[in-house]
Simulated assay, not measured.
Amino acid sequence: MFAKPIPGRTTAAVEGDAVVLLIGMRINHFWAVHQWLPVFLAMPRMLRELAKDKQRGLLGHVLLTASPRTYYVVQYWESKEKLYAYAHAPDMFHRRAWAILNGKERKGKLRQHVGLWHETYVVPEGSYESIYADMPPFGLAAATGVLPIESRGRRAADRLAHRSGARAGAK
């Protein structure tokens, strides 16, 4: 199930602002498997949950490894409001997982065995651009679709100047 490369140069079909969440964990003590393994397994469960309900707003994601200790996910969201809504939804796994982690942290059981982090970026339209050369859909393009590079401009400056139809009329 490998995606085939698209010949030539393409760009992401994103319109409007781009919402990017980087979220990950670092294993601080390999021997404390009983502490970090549940944290490690929580993210795939949340991603499966989100994949079942596209209305929640997750457009796509990329799983990455920074080192044998550090794992993270780059997520692309429809909006920061949908990201926040998922994070706080009482019927979704994230809320339960976070409550369990915070409970363990308060009791000192999780402390120092596993590190957690996230960074959220809302990137305004006109402040991002992309190019993919002989690549299958990846990253932002996998999340939002692929366009021929000519549709947004051959140069980075041209792609950064692109405005979606909804915004172009609002000027």
Rank of each mutant, 00 (worst) to 15 (best):
L37S: 02
P38L: 10
P38K: 10
V39I: 13
V39D: 07
V39W: 02
V39T: 07
V39F: 07
F40D: 00
F40G: 01
L41V: 03
L41E: 14
L41C: 08
L41P: 00
L41H: 12
A42V: 04
M43H: 04
M43I: 11
M43E: 06
P44C: 09
P44S: 11
R45G: 11
R45Y: 01
R45T: 11
M46N: 02
M46H: 06
L47K: 06
L47E: 08
L47G: 03
E49L: 05
E49G: 04
L50G: 00
L50A: 08
A51W: 00
K52L: 11
K52F: 00
K52M: 05
K52C: 07
D53P: 03
D53W: 02
Q55P: 04
Q55R: 13
R56W: 09
R56H: 08
G57K: 06
G57V: 09
G57N: 07
L58Y: 00
L59H: 07
G60A: 14
G60Y: 01
H61K: 11
H61Y: 15
H61M: 09
H61I: 02
H61V: 06
V62R: 14
V62P: 00
L63R: 13
L63I: 08
L64H: 14
L64M: 15
T65G: 13
A66N: 13
A66Q: 15
A66S: 14
A66E: 15
S67G: 09
S67M: 10
P68S: 15
P68A: 13
P68G: 13
P68D: 12
R69V: 02
R69M: 10
T70P: 01
T70C: 11
T70R: 15
Y71T: 03
Y71C: 03
Y71A: 10
Y72T: 06
Y72A: 11
Y72D: 05
V73I: 07
V74M: 13
V74L: 12
V74E: 05
Q75T: 10
Q75V: 02
Y76H: 10
Y76Q: 11
Y76T: 04
W77R: 01
W77N: 03
W77P: 00
